[in-house]
Design a protein around this nucleic acid. Structure first.
Length: 595
RNA sequence: GGAGCUGUAGUGUAGUGGCCUAACAUGCCGGCCUGUCACGCCGGAGACCGCGGGUUCGAAUCCCGUCAGCUCCGCCA
């Protein structure tokens, strides 16, 4: 490399007029006019125009003619002002150009398989195979910067608040509960395995026992479950834990962190404190434990009217302990039969029997179930649903949770299609007072709602032995525009209580000792009260970047099937490697030959 | 594990039973061009329509299977 770079392309302005500079980068585009060639040269900072003039530089003009898309060059030349009629207002550097005086071709490039520019509509398959080219695109570079700035902001803020960044192991032990583990075979102990961490949960609790007091980590986590648009098997958490804290201490700390990040990175002020919604209220009003409160359409209840009606589907459901809940879809009484059929089939796929509807037209109520209700009952329904002429009412009769979840999903769906969700608004809220446990029908036992180390609500200790399902936890989720971006809890810090919770979860004393013995032991050596939270960094950045897929904010993501198209992982390994790890694989018929 | 959508030159699309010897744009290659910035003009190459089977006189088009990508349900303490 003869020419040593002096400037980045995208930052040169008329302030640099007359300077002799050397820039280096990729050929973004070229316009060959015969005796005059314009080159758009791109580096991570942006684009600058370089002009090759045959009359001034006949010697390397031939070389310039051969320049192609994505070739890498360095160019020396003088910054000159463009004449007013040739200024490009669409470019930061549009007022100037570099009059090439010398050029060095640093590397040629094959023609790239897609355009290196923003807003391309290329098969994601191809983008992932050539991720290094995809990442050259300005919007992807911006994503990398956004992610970087978010991490820097978080680090700076947490450091300022007295948090200590501590690393925890990636090779750890598999524990029951939670997601499927990624396993790593041990070479030295045949038949034994490490697991990659689903989160640093237990280590950060041990750090509290160790007296670290305030911990954080930008932690990579691994969960071997199926993927979604907002879920990758390998993801990053901003993980925090504090000692001697209450729920509200953690909440306050996190609100400080979030406003700091939004301030630093997006220069957008965030209003604190955030709203706090108990789980039951979130469900009752929005049919979700991560409600999108950017729009209304809250859920109503007509169970009492339904019970008194002659409509058996409603009546029986309420008598059997269920509920009848509904949505008021404002101004949508005109929905066609097909619209309603589509909604009904959506409701069915969401797990309920069907959907009842009432359309409020000018001269009354249009509904297939009119005959089951007295006019007084219909009036009462209208009142409960705050319905006016022109509104469409949708009802689901089911168990409390099912009815609300179905309506919650319909609410989101309708808001989407009716374009009710305002863009560019930041709605943060906390959901608290989750049930500590839920009953798993398949496994026939209680399972933790959050995780087994979550402390029960102070007022609900009594309930643990009597009515465990009624016990609330000290868990909290941070919801941003209808997406859960962080979750945490105050932890159990006493051995006896932890053992009691393990018992409830049907983790016997033997298993508890084997799997969590180290934690229980630690609790006997003066574990302080503590709690914490973890942010899904990828999701947070995705939302900050207003992207629909988490893959857009992860430099090297996996496909929906969990493969890496760039490297071809996962891949087979040699017999020697397997033998060393004491592993033999089982060939099945339907394993795509991937064995 | 289940459901749906998609797969046609390098890229993005059109073509939905015979008009297809597969079209258009862009990119690519060659030529011309001294003020372009989506430069322009002229010429050229480039696809057995993801793969395999079937139906049919005839398949890019219909059917079955399969692979890949995406989306959703289950799953994700």
């Amino acid at each position: 490399m003869r020419l040593k770079r002096t400037h980045y392309c995208g930052v040169i302005s008329k302030e640099n007029k007359g300077e002799n500079v050397i820039v280096a980068g990729w050929i973004h585009g070229r316009r060959d006019h015969g005796g005059l060639i314009f080159i758009d040269l791109r580096d991570r900072s942006g684009i600058v125009q370089v002009v090759f003039d045959f009359q001034k530089n006949a010697t390397f003009f031939e070389q310039a003619r051969k320049l192609r898309q994505e070739h890498v060059i360095a160019v020396a030349g003088e910054i000159v002002l463009r004449s007013p009629d040739t200024v490009n207002p669409g470019l930061f550097t549009g007022e100037i150009e570099i009059a090439a005086a010398e050029m060095e071709l640093l590397n040629a490039s094959q023609t790239p398989p897609f355009y290196i520019e923003d807003g391309i509509d290329t098969d994601e398959n191809l983008r992932l195979q050539y991720r290094y080219l995809d990442l050259r695109r300005p919007e992807m570079q911006e994503m990398l910067r956004l992610r970087h700035r978010t991490l820097m902001s978080a680090r700076k803020h947490l450091d300022g608040r007295g948090f200590l960044e501590v690393e925890t192991p990636m090779l750890t032990r598999s524990t029951p509960e939670g997601a499927r583990d990624y396993l790593v075979p041990s070479r030295t102990f045949p038949g034994h395995f490490f697991a990659l961490p689903q989160s640093p949960q237990l280590f950060k609790q041990l750090l509290m026992v160790a007296g670290v007091d305030k911990y954080f980590q930008i932690a990579r986590c691994f969960r071997d479950e199926d993927l979604r648009a907002d879920r990758q098997p390998e993801f990053t958490q901003i993980d925090m834990e504090m000692s001697f804290c209450s729920r509200d201490d953690v909440i306050q700390e996190v609100e400080g962190l979030v406003s700091s990040i939004f301030d630093d990175v997006l220069e957008r002020p965030v209003e604190t404190p955030f709203k706090v919604l108990p789980y039951v209220e979130a469900m009752e009003r929005f049919g979700s434990d991560k409600p999108d409160t950017r729009f209304g359409m809250e859920i109503g209840d007509i169970s009492s009217v339904a019970a008194a009606s002659e409509f058996k589907v409603f009546k029986n459901m309420v008598q059997d302990g269920g509920v009848v809940k509904g949505l008021n879809v404002k101004g949508c009484a005109h929905f066609s039969r097909k619209d309603l059929d589509d909604l009904t089939s959506l409701a069915r796929t969401l797990g309920t029997g069907g959907l009842a509807w009432m359309a409020l037209v000018e001269d009354g109520i249009k509904t297939p179930i009119a005959k089951f209700f007295t006019s007084a009952q219909l009036e009462s329904i209208k009142e409960k649903m705050k319905a006016e002429p022109g509104d469409l009412l949708l009802f689901v009769a089911d168990k409390w949770e099912t009815a609300l979840k179905v309506l919650g999903q319909l609410r989101l769906d309708l808001a989407q299609s009716l374009d009710l969700v305002p863009e560019g608004t930041d709605h943060f809220l906390w959901v608290v007072d989750f049930p500590l446990l839920t009953y798993d029908q398949k496994e026939g036992r209680y399972v933790s709602n959050h995780h087994p180390f979550t402390a029960p609500h102070d007022d609900d200790y009594e309930l643990l032995s009597k009515e465990p399902l009624k016990a609330r936890s000290q868990a909290y989720d941070l919801v941003y525009n209808g997406t859960e971006i962080a979750g945490g809890s105050i932890r159990i810090h006493r051995r006896a209580l932890q053992e009691e919770v393990f018992r409830l979860l049907d983790i016997g004393p033997e298993e508890a000792k084997e799997k969590f013995g180290f934690l229980l032991k630690a609790f006997q050596y003066g574990a302080p009260p503590h709690g914490g939270i973890a942010f899904g960094l990828d999701r947070l950045v995705m939302l900050m970047a207003a992207r629909k897929s988490i893959r857009d904010v992860i430099p090297f993501p996996k496909t929906a099937a969990g493969t890496c198209l760039l490297t071809g992982a996962p891949a087979g390994v040699s017999a020697e490697q397997l033998a060393e790890l004491h592993i033999s694989t089982i060939k099945r018929n339907n394993n795509n030959g991937k064995g």
